[in-house]
Structure formats: C-alpha cells, structure tokens
Amino acid sequence: MLGRASSKADTGEEATLESCLHRVALGDREAFDEVYGQLAGPILGVARRVLRDPAQAEEVAQEVLVEIWRTASRFDAARGSARAWALTMAHARAVDRVRSADAATRREARAAELMVEPPFDQVVEAVEARLDRQRVRHCLEGLTELQRQSVTLAYYGGYTYSQVAHLLDTPLGTVKTRLRDGLARLRDCLGVGG
C-alpha cells in the first residue's frame, strides 16, 4: 500500500482510518464518526478551495461523506490509502461541480483573483491541518514558479490543463509536463510512497 511514509507523527492514523473504514463497511456508526472526524475537514476544505462558495462546498462534502458511508466496502487498501481514496473522490466531485454549466462565467471572474492571492492566505486555519499545511507550503515553495502555478491552478483552482495553459500563457505541453513533474517533486518532498 502506498503510505505516507515520512508524513506526520501519526502514521498510526492511516491504519486507524483504514480499519475504521472496514468497520464502517459493516455498518458501524461509531467507526463512521471516527472517519468523519479525520476526513470531514480535508473534504470540506478541498471542496471549498475548488468551489469557493461555502454552501456548495458543504453540499459536496455532504455528498462525499454519505458516499463514503455507502461505498466503504468498495475501498481497496491495495490501491492506496483510505485518505487518498476519500480525497480523490472529494476533489473529483468538486471539480465536476465547477465544470457544470454555470461555471464558465464564474471561472473567468475567479481567474484574476486566483493569480494575485497566495493560495494559503485564503485558507481558514484549522488546527488539525496545520502540520500538513506547513509541509505542503514548504514543498510548494520548492517547486519552480511554473510548476507551483500549474499545480495550484489545476488542483485548487479546478481548471483543466488547457485552461491553465491559457491563464499562464504557456504551451499546453509545458503545462502538462509541469503538472506531472511538479506533483512528482511534491511527492518526493512530502515523502509519499517512499
């Protein structure tokens, strides 16, 4: 399983999360409370980053958390961590929503805003996220400017890579490559899968 080898001092957390998810699959509401406690913050946070609108972000978070309850038995630890399973789902849902019909105009309006504000200044501090935030911030700072902008716009902004290329006035192929090598460098910096 791909773990978070050198991640937080909580390597026990992932094991707990996965065993909790297993119990959730068996209908254990207390285990779900534990999963909720660990994942609701990141799920809401990523939805909020992508969607901006707090009400829509809460709707997406609600859908994803219910989906975790519903499909807990489909989680396959051989394919990755429980955290990645849940947060991949959350990000996908948020992006789906941002790409829905009314999104185009809103994205235009957001573009300038995203470009001028440092991404982390927009985030409400949450105690449990501080460590992740510090590490991610540190590692993002280690990227090239183009890598950082590409990853930030695509992941947090919910833009397609061709939109990112347009926003950054950079060739498509370059953005494609920067997304890949930017994430790979983050992976190495964060000690994922090590």
Binding site: L2, G3, R4, S7, Y36, A40, G41, P42, I43, L44, G45, V46, R48, R49, E58, A61, Q62, L65, V66, W69, R79, G80, S81, R83, A84, L87, T88, A90, H91, F120, V123, V124, A126, V127, E128, A129, D132, R133, R135, V136, R137, V151, Y155, Y156, R180, L183, A184, L186, R187, L190, V192, G193
Partner: peptide, 28 residues
C-alpha cells in the same frame, strides 16, 4: 505513478482542511 500522485494530491487536500460546521455532521 498515478497512485503515488494521488497520495500526494491527498496531502494538498489535507493542507486545505477547514473545521466543518456542526450542521454538516448533523446533515450527514
């Protein structure tokens, strides 16, 4: 590679964590 990058992206999500309002738990 996708699996590893998904783990990485999950940390980007974790870094964006917010404290959820109590009504979210109630709704879920």
């Amino acid at each position: 590679e996708v699996a590893e990058l998904q783990e990485t992206a999950a940390l980007l999500a974790s870094a964006a964590a917010e404290t959820p309002p109590a009504r979210l738990k109630a709704a879920v």
